[in-house]
């Protein structure tokens, strides 16, 4: 078992970074915690600080104001860290990619391990994405 596998063997703690989003993905991520999907049964919790997190969830297009903050948060996070870009905006910039404040999709700023497309992705898709990533 490598170091990375060892680190992600047990309960994953998630930190959620909302870029310039429309709020849909944020709500769907929060939805994962509620009774129908209930990711907490797998030991996943949303934590308040990235310093405690194993997974960084990034959604929304990143604008010029968010960019430096996203970098800062990424640097603060303990490694190994899995970065998941959620939603069309997180993956490519989506409908806002043509906007004048757009500062590039997430993977132009920090390395991304998994992309979960959809506008917004369903909670099932978010769960499936993370499970797929862990089985990789």
């Amino acid at each position: 078992m490598g170091f990375k596998e060892f680190c992600f063997k047990k309960s994953l703690w998630l930190f959620h970074f909302a870029g310039a989003s429309c709020n849909n993905c944020d709500i769907e991520i929060l939805d994962c915690l509620t009774p129908r999907y209930d990711v907490e049964r797998f030991g996943m919790v949303l934590v308040g600080s990235v310093r405690h997190a194993d997974v960084l969830l990034v959604n929304g297009s990143i604008n010029q104001r968010d960019k430096s903050r996203l970098l800062e948060i990424y640097e603060q996070a303990p490694k190994p860290l899995v970065v998941v870009a959620i939603g069309a905006c997180g993956c490519t910039g989506g409908i806002f990619a043509e906007g004048d404040t757009f500062a590039g999709p997430v993977d132009k700023i920090i390395p991304v391990d998994a992309y979960i497309p959809g506008c917004p992705p369903k909670p099932e898709a978010i769960l499936a994405g993370i499970v797929k990533l862990l089985n990789k």
Binding site: G19, A20, S21, G60, S61, N63, R65, D66, R69, I95, F96, E98, G99, D100, T101, F102
Partner: peptide, 14 residues
Amino acid sequence: TGYNHRGIEKLSEK
């Protein structure tokens, strides 16, 4: 504010 600015009014004109 400004962390969430996406320039929607301008985008709409395109």
